[in-house]
């Protein structure tokens, strides 16, 4: 019997349409402050930061299989360095990005220790790192301990201009990070890190440089979380260490990635939008809102670990922004080859 002819497919017609739509939406959002009123601009800025958090956590966990409960370490440090740099007299907006790069550089030595840990040890070990980072930041007299401080350098800008600049920074950060993650996941590194997630020994045996790939994702995820933190301090203005180093940020990331779809590129974005809407509707419910978030994370982890988008993918084989491969038998129905 003749072997069936196959074709490896990456882009599909619907994914080309989706990418075109995504680019149109991005182009619209890029001129957001000219189109929308102040309230919407502020809310979109928040949404962009949520997308960054969700995508960064998803890259680390959903693709690399490294669950961290300590990403608030990077979030808080990003905000801290932004405040520190601004206090030293650097221009505020470039400082947001430089702060994230500093944190990214700090995550390199950290990765040499932490990446030796596995599973639950890595998860809580990162939490300890976050606690330690929090305590060390409190030692800086600029911060005034738990009282915190403000990004007063922002006062140099008129309120409207500040809102638009913060929006553009958040948008640029989100678009840039999404593009980096998309390209990274589609490339050889993406295949490598997913192989590590699925079976580390097997990946190593076929020549994947495990440590290098893990370190790359760990550092990217640290830099992204730090950028989210520095952007957050630009929107919130005040910096209180307890708020920024709270594990609640990781709870949000887990919720977004789990509900949207762990290990799917589109899922993290969807999860951020879902979280944003839930917060807008139920955020006022206070404690019960947090109970709901925790319960949702629990239920999704047990019943639907690949989230809403994972479920859609399994049912429909739909890929809007494909980062994987699929095998197509010519003249036969589609055979789906996973993410």
């Amino acid at each position: 019997m003749k072997a069936p002819a196959i074709r490896i497919e990456r882009w599909t017609p619907e994914s080309r349409v989706a990418l075109a739509l995504a680019l149109i939406v991005a182009a619209l959002l890029a001129v957001g402050p000219l189109l929308f009123d102040a309230n919407i601009v502020d809310r979109l800025t928040t949404l962009f930061i949520y997308v960054i958090l969700a995508v960064m956590w998803n890259a680390l966990v959903g693709y690399c299989g490294l669950v961290s409960i300590g990403q608030q370490a990077f979030f808080g440090l990003g905000a801290y360095f932004a405040v520190r740099l601004a206090d030293l007299g650097f221009s505020v907006y470039p400082s947001l990005f430089v702060a994230a790069l500093i944190v990214g550089a700090l995550s390199l030595p950290l990765s040499t220790i932490m990446l030796r840990l596995k599973g639950g040890e890595f998860a809580i070990g990162m939490w300890v790192v976050a606690e330690l980072a929090h305590l060390l930041v409190n030692l800086d007299t600029l911060i005034n301990g738990e009282t915190g401080t403000s990004l007063i350098a922002l006062n140099a800008y008129a309120i409207g201009k500040r809102r638009a600049l913060t929006y553009w920074c958040a948008f640029a950060a989100m678009a840039g990070l999404l593009a980096v993650v998309f390209v990274l996941l589609r490339g050889p590194t993406g295949a490598a890190i997913q192989a590590i997630r699925d079976n580390e020994q097997a990946a190593e045996s076929i020549g994947v440089r495990v440590t290098r790939a893990k370190r790359l994702v760990f550092m990217l995820s640290a830099t992204g979380a730090a950028l989210a933190g520095s952007l957050w301090v630009a929107t919130a203005v005040t910096f209180q260490p307890r708020t920024y180093f709270s594990p609640q940020w990781t709870a949000y990331m887990i919720f977004m990635a789990l509900v949207g779809g762990l290990g799917t590129f589109e899922g993290a974005i969807l999860g951020a939008v879902v979280f944003f809407l839930i917060e807008a509707w139920f955020g006022g419910a206070g404690v019960w809102y947090l109970v709901g978030l925790g319960a949702a994370a629990l239920v999704f982890a047990l019943a639907l670990p690949r989230g809403i988008w994972g479920w859609v993918e399994d049912k429909t084989a739909l890929r809007l922004l494909p980062v994987g491969y699929r095998v197509k038998l010519i003249g036969e129905p589609d055979v789906d080859k996973g993410a």
């Binding site: 669950v67 409960i69 596995k118 599973g119 887990i254 762990l262 994370a297 982890a301 047990l302 670990p305």
Partner: peptide, 8 residues
């Protein structure tokens, strides 16, 4: 797997 207990 290893991931889920941490999350749940």
């Amino acid at each position: 797997g290893l991931l889920v207990p941490v999350l749940s």
